[in-house]
Design a protein around this nucleic acid. Structure first.
Length: 207
DNA sequence: ACCGGGATGTTCT
DNA sequence: GAACATCCCGGTG
């Protein structure tokens, strides 16, 4: 886990493609008591297939551009923690914090390929007609995983956290595509920068 | 298939 | 008061 933490202290533009094929896991830990065991059936997880970098101070599209606020304070903390925000009055989006403590930066998780807990995902996402609609967007995946502001700030690299980031041995994707970020006001100076990337040939990407 | 609009509330100016 | 790192539904072709 030390290697992953070191990786995440870099510029989010560098980190973003390296997060593809890593795994995000919610729950699945045993209850309190000695010998708490992992219960795979109880976890909800997915393989990361699409991400976007938000660079922080140099990036007017980043929530951290204008400095720390109550909402974005986690972005200024240590790397490897989860930043969750609420937007459009009904959706949550989750990010993995990058860069060393004191310097803001994050990678937005835009899409997952579901791995475990598909039944839980389906029950939370009633409108999803196909399994590929469960996590194919930043708001969708937070709903599928049950992530909200109460998870803001959790350490993804602590094995006892309710949300973890794992290298599950999928290895790097065979092919990665790069393009501009989505949903940004065109007036922003960095709106057209190619800071989104995704796994080519993956049916679970957004859009 | 593509396109347009409405939902809904937090955050910051 | 405006903007918002979105999603879903209902229109049309």
């Amino acid at each position: 886990m030390k290697a992953l933490r070191r990786l995440l202290s870099d510029d989010p533009v560098v980190v973003a493609p390296l997060l593809l094929n890593k795994v995000l896991v919610v729950g699945g830990l045993g209850g309190a008591g000695a010998g708490a065991a992992v219960r795979p059936g109880a976890s909800v997880s997915g393989r990361i297939v699409e991400v976007e970098a938000y660079r922080g101070a140099d990036d007017p599209a980043s929530h951290a551009f204008r400095g720390p606020t109550p909402r974005n304070s986690v972005m200024f903390g240590p790397p490897g923690h989860l930043y969750v925000y609420f937007t459009y009055g009904m959706h949550h989006c989750c990010n993995i914090v990058c860069r060393p403590e004191g310097t803001a930066g994050a990678v937005l998780i835009r899409a997952l390929a579901p791995l475990t807990g598909l039944d839980d995902m389906r029950s939370r996402r009633v409108s999803a007609r196909r399994d590929q609609d469960l996590c194919s967007g930043p708001g969708k995946l937070c709903q599928a995983l049950g992530l909200d502001r109460s998870f803001d700030g959790v350490d993804l690299l602590d094995t006892s956290s309710p949300v973890r980031l794992l290298d599950d041995g999928f290895g790097p994707p065979a092919e990665v595509a790069i393009g501009p970020r989505i949903g940004l006001s065109a007036k922003l100076a960095t709106a057209a920068e190619p800071w989104r990337c995704w796994v080519v040939g993956e049916s679970n990407v957004s859009r």
